[in-house]
């Protein structure tokens, strides 16, 4: 949970902050509110991992295991590499997307590596190293097959999640209907029939 807050919400923020100024109003407004929520998740996640990392050996192992598990998926959250991203050109032309996937991904890595050092945790990328020439971190090759499987709906949680959502929605139908029926009964007089 800590790793998700720190990495996944962290990646989401990098991805979404530029959208707060995008050309489509409803999206921009929603993103402003989402970013407010994400930013405290990110800090909370960091704090959780910090406490675990500096706790008992078992807790440290928990934190490291979580980071090992969620690092690559966080990088994949920025989408496919620019040369394999079908919708990017259109979104950028329309001013909805303002930075490319690779640009944002690089920004995220450069921000996050020093944070991992502060946490005393390693990142599971043997090819991760500082490139003084570029002024950025070099990243190892990302295996995007996991991303594409998840997007297609074949990820480990896709089926369970959809099932849960459908069930909750179906089981809630009688509640929504009741509220709508009550509202209809109590609406202003001109709407009611004899």
């Amino acid at each position: 949970m800590g790793a998700i807050g720190w990495l996944v919400d962290g990646a989401a923020i990098v991805n979404q902050v530029p959208l707060c100024r995008c050309s489509y109003g409803p999206y921009a407004r929603a993103m402003v509110r989402v970013c407010k929520e994400e930013s405290f998740h990110q800090r909370q996640g960091f704090e959780i991992l910090n406490t675990l990392s500096h706790g008992t050996p078992a807790q440290h192992a928990m934190a490291q295991d979580a980071v090992d598990r969620w690092w690559w998926p966080s990088l994949m959250m920025f989408g496919p590499p620019d040369d394999a991203s079908p919708n990017s050109a259109q979104s950028m032309a329309w001013g909805i997307k303002r930075f490319s996937n690779d640009q944002l991904r690089q920004r995220f890595v450069d921000m996050t590596v020093p944070q991992s050092q502060a946490l005393g945790l390693t990142l599971p990328d043997p090819d991760l190293r500082w490139n003084a020439e570029r002024g950025s971190y070099d990243i190892g090759e990302i295996d995007f097959s996991e991303l594409f499987e998840v997007i297609k709906g074949n990820g480990p949680c896709n089926a369970a999640r959809m099932n849960h959502r459908r069930t909750a929605h179906e089981e809630g139908a009688w509640v929504r209907e009741a509220a709508a029926a009550y509202a209809a009964k109590h609406r202003a007089p001109q709407a009611s029939a004899a």
């Binding site: 009688w174 509640v175 209907e177 009741a178 509220a179 029926a181 009550y182």
Partner: peptide, 11 residues
């Protein structure tokens, strides 16, 4: 309670 009690027969 109002909405469920005075909603539908099911609620």
């Amino acid at each position: 309670t109002l909405r469920l009690g005075d909603g539908t027969p099911e609620s």
